[in-house]
Design a protein around this nucleic acid. Sequence first.
DNA 1: GCCAACGTTGGC
DNA 2: GCCAACGTTGGC
Length: 136
Amino acid sequence: MNYWLVKSEPEAYSWADFLRDDGTAWTGVRNYQARNNLNLMQPGDQVLFYHSVSEKAVVGLAEVAAPAAPDATAEAGSPWVAVALRPVGPLARPVALAALKADARLAELALLRQSRLSVLPVRPDEFDLIMALGAA
DNA sequence: GCCAACGTTGGC
DNA sequence: GCCAACGTTGGC
């Protein structure tokens, strides 16, 4: 079991949209490093859902429903892939970026080190801590 | 709205 | 193969 974090601008595709759709194909990733992370995802992996830009908080938990497959929104023959994600549930309390930065135990969190990457790995200890911070 | 970080493109 | 120019992302 591995842990990940995906980012979405809520104005483009929000957690509420994700719940409404009861999951979605995570298409549109056009960065090789992010793609490599998508390729490493396995069904059942847990995925933190992060709202970037306007909210800057982890808002929910998703899981991988299907592994990487060619991204249907990309040109045929292109290297881009998508995984299927399904919602697990919202965090009782969103965990703000500021809270992540404030916790010394998250100093190595990939999100903080590579703020522009949209699909990031999360260590098990980091995942547990973020889930604890997001619990009621 | 600005700017830093960083990936990509294209000229040489 | 290098590097300047440029575009995009995302925090502030």
